[in-house]
């Protein structure tokens, strides 16, 4: 874990998930190019959907700036998914394998965790989440490349890993343009509300 991620831990959600499902790394299920790209596609779509949900949550809680940022991230991930369809010449999303996609962790390696959110979080925090996810995606494909049984899949997985590494760099650049969180960003002067 690098320093940025440790800062994020302190500021927003704190800890990262550990595997619960006990499923073997997805490599076992990835035997062909098609398998690999189906996984890649699912990973991007799941990530995009989650960012979209995050955007909804933030908008609902009047945190427009972060909402917009998540919306942007959702669009980027969607674009990645579409690129995969295009590269593979698929006209429709590939059918999921029997029993659905199996990730090493709890969800797809690029899918953000709901508990990372805070209603007062700032754009920098959102990018920390994105950075963490891109790194996980990089590790996911790197792992696949290491364990691949055919040269073709290994090469493709390496390419995907390289792409994710590029995404990591992009997010890091983005973070440089965004102000660091204010020291008391999570201070709320009012107590929580009674609802029902």
């Amino acid at each position: 874990m690098n320093a940025t991620k440790q800062a994020a831990r302190k500021r927003v959600a704190t800890k990262r998930p550990v595997p619960v499902r006990g499923a073997k790394p997805a490599a076992a299920a990835v035997r062909s190019m098609n398998d690999l790209m189906a996984y890649a596609y699912a990973l991007e779509v799941e990530a995009a959907e989650r960012y979209g949900e995050f955007a909804d949550v933030m908008e609902e809680h009047n945190n427009r700036a972060v909402g917009e940022l998540f919306r942007k991230l959702a669009r980027i991930e969607h674009k990645h998914a579409e690129q995969i369809l295009e590269e593979m010449g698929w006209t429709a999303p590939p059918p999921p394998p029997d029993g659905g996609y199996r990730w090493q962790g709890m969800e797809g390696p690029e899918t953000a965790d709901f508990t990372e959110l805070h209603y007062l979080m700032q754009p920098y925090h959102a990018l920390e989440i994105a950075l963490h996810n891109e790194k996980r995606a990089f590790e996911f494909f790197s792992g696949l490349a290491r364990r691949a049984t055919t040269e073709k899949v290994k090469r493709a997985a390496k390419e995907m890993a390289a792409e994710e590494a590029e995404h990591v760099r992009l997010i890091e650049d983005w973070m440089k343009k965004v102000p660091l969180p204010e020291p008391q960003w999570d201070v709320d002067l009012d107590p929580p509300r009674y609802v029902d």
Binding site: V57, M58, E59, A92, P93, E116, H118, V195
Partner: peptide, 29 residues
């Protein structure tokens, strides 16, 4: 993808009404 398949994707089970839960709440998941 035919209509039935679309209807039975997870996204089809979400309403367009947004939760009021605190961001970070486990109930979103």
């Amino acid at each position: 993808m035919n209509d039935m398949a679309v209807a039975l994707q997870p996204a089809a089970y979400k309403s367009d009404y947004k939760p009021i839960w605190c961001p970070g709440c486990g109930d979103y998941s």
